[in-house]
Design a protein around this nucleic acid. Structure first.
Lengths: 338, 338
DNA sequence: ATGAAAGCGCTAACAT
DNA sequence: ATGTTAGCGCTTTCAT
């Protein structure tokens, strides 16, 4: 049995406007009447229909979060931050991923087509030609997270990759006696990988330790592939002054696992560092030295920007830059000594 | 500039019904007219308003997935399965979690309040008094996943915990020489923990190795707490014929980590097994013997049931039971020998 | 403080 | 094959 605002009005013996007022702006209606209406609502189990409501209000109070994937702690933390912030701002968050064969673009377009959400925070990690086209064609508030370099058109929250890499590099080069770096990235079209690699090249060049192409590998951010690659390369890599620099913690864990299997001790015979500081970094042995990316913050700030924009579409786009922090644990040498 | 169906109709010089027909049932309109309308739609960048549409159709083609939390591989896999299936059935999936201080119940009620989704698959792991009340008050299609024992009112997909535990128990008792079991569960109101613990009691009693209360611990499914507990208890536990049975892989990993730190070799001086077979089980050393729960399947089947029900609300509720499978790796003794 | 009525954008039954 | 029209459930002027 469907119950609409009319049923409530009848039962409470008021007009539908009064019911609507009780629903939206309680102060505008007499206390007694309000009680009658509220009773009717309760008794009938009435819930305002979101479509009817949305039709008038042109908003659903639902915001979306679109990530490249939902797998792994990195994204979980972002989601948590986003969810917490959305709630505290009176919005519902829905999450979707571009995984499973569909890219963020078509997903975004689908979302927009439905138009059921008031805006979306999106992380696009793969750069393609029509990213810009899709984004500019977007009719609703969007905020960009990390990933592809966001123009000035949109609000964005980014990670200061350069700063994170520099902190890591100066620790490795200065304190851990690293003389050779092996870089393990994700796919070479991945924006984070590109940013981190570029930052490494700069840091190393400055230290007169150029990163040779043979020491740069493009994998897929997964444990397994890093593990396989490392198993294969370990003979070449194993050296106290060499450090494998992975673009995320999972791959670093893969390298450590392969080293373990091959009897190569980390960090004494090979140093390894990760990136992100996901939960995994503390779970594996030795614990991973890595760069903490404030994932929770990233999600929260993105939603904050988004809701702000929804409330005022006209205002100037803002860019929030989040600083990563070096986290020293046990996978690289403490003071340049074994 | 907002553009509605009227603008399209004007531009194409047809009535709004024709535009609507082009949108919904293309075959009902003359090819030439259709082209004109499609051109107008394109030129104007028209997208049907989902609220107006939903108001008539009473559906949004969006389904929800509500999980107790989004953290960890267990949930990620469920989401992936659910997402893939939703897409293949022409629905959009939105994910929400009950974490961050809100229980599944109030979240469900909020979702229902909005009514923007056509139905929801929900996993409730904590049993409370009003679970039943909330579920029966739900006005939309719901399917229950694992967790609380689903009545016959709703479609459900459950894991056959009994079967998984039996397989594990018979391996441990029969092949690994286990004579004492330490059970590490989640919170004691957690449905999975309850089911797994009960199954263990039965299996052990049958083998005349009753599980004493002192060997049952209720933790929180987290690595850290298991790690701390193990560090504290290891003196008592360490024994080649003792096996720590954790209710998920994370806690098993915590125990192994503590053992490692204390110089207790797994599986030679203590055996450890997990549950779920998440990605972590393969990442740690020794690799974890565990019970594979078909998480992806669980998500997919739940959505399949859900969409089926949305299409036909009247049909008999179905219950799908998914069998877990024993996965033998290196954290318990191969053949009862050290 | 409350009610009447218009209209948000869309679909579908009915008419042509 | 196409147009006309009546709602879907709600919010919101504008009256009273």
């Amino acid at each position: 049995m469907r119950v609409s605002i009319v049923d409530v009005a009848n039962r409470a013996e008021v007009s539908i406007s009064t019911v609507s007022r009780v629903l939206n702006r309680r102060d505008l209606v007499n206390a007694k009447t309000r009680e009658r209406v509220e009773a009717a609502i309760r008794e009938l189990g009435f819930r305002p229909n979101a479509f009817g409501r949305g039709l008038m209000l042109r908003r659903s109070e639902v915001v979306g979060l679109v990530l490249p994937d939902l797998h792994g702690d990195f994204y979980s933390e972002i989601i948590r931050g986003a969810d917490a912030k959305a709630r505290s701002m009176g919005y519902n968050l829905v999450v979707s991923s571009a995984a499973a064969g569909e890219d963020s673009h078509s997903l975004l377009e689908r979302l927009q087509n439905r138009g059921l959400i008031d805006g979306v925070a999106v992380m696009i990690s793969e750069v393609t030609e029509d990213t810009e086209r899709v984004l500019s064609g977007f009719r609703q508030p969007v905020v960009l997270m990390d990933g592809v370099s966001p123009g000035d058109q949109h609000d964005s929250v980014v990670i200061d990759q350069e700063r994170g890499v520099q902190a890591l590099a100066s620790h490795l080069l200065g304190k851990c006696g690293v003389r050779r770096v092996i870089f393990l990235g994700g796919c070479d079209t991945n924006a984070d990988t590109q940013a981190r690699l570029a930052a490494w090249r700069r840091s190393l060049t400055k230290a007169r330790l150029p990163l040779v192409d043979e020491d740069v590998y493009h994998l897929d951010y997964e444990f397994e592939s890093a593990c396989r690659l490392a198993a294969d390369r370990l003979d070449d890599w194993a050296d106290p002054d060499t450090c494998v620099v992975a673009a995320n913690d999972e791959m670093a864990a893969g390298v450590i696992s392969a080293a373990h299997a091959a009897g190569v001790t980390v960090p004494d015979e090979l140093q390894v560092v990760g990136f992100d500081d996901t939960r995994l970094a503390k779970l594996i042995r030795p614990k991973l030295t890595t760069v903490r990316v404030p994932m929770w913050q990233m999600g929260a700030r993105a939603i904050e920007l988004l809701c702000g924009r929804i409330q005022d579409e006209a205002k100037e786009p803002r860019r929030v830059s989040l600083p990563p922090a070096l986290v020293v644990r046990d996978s690289c040498r403490a003071n340049g000594v074994s």
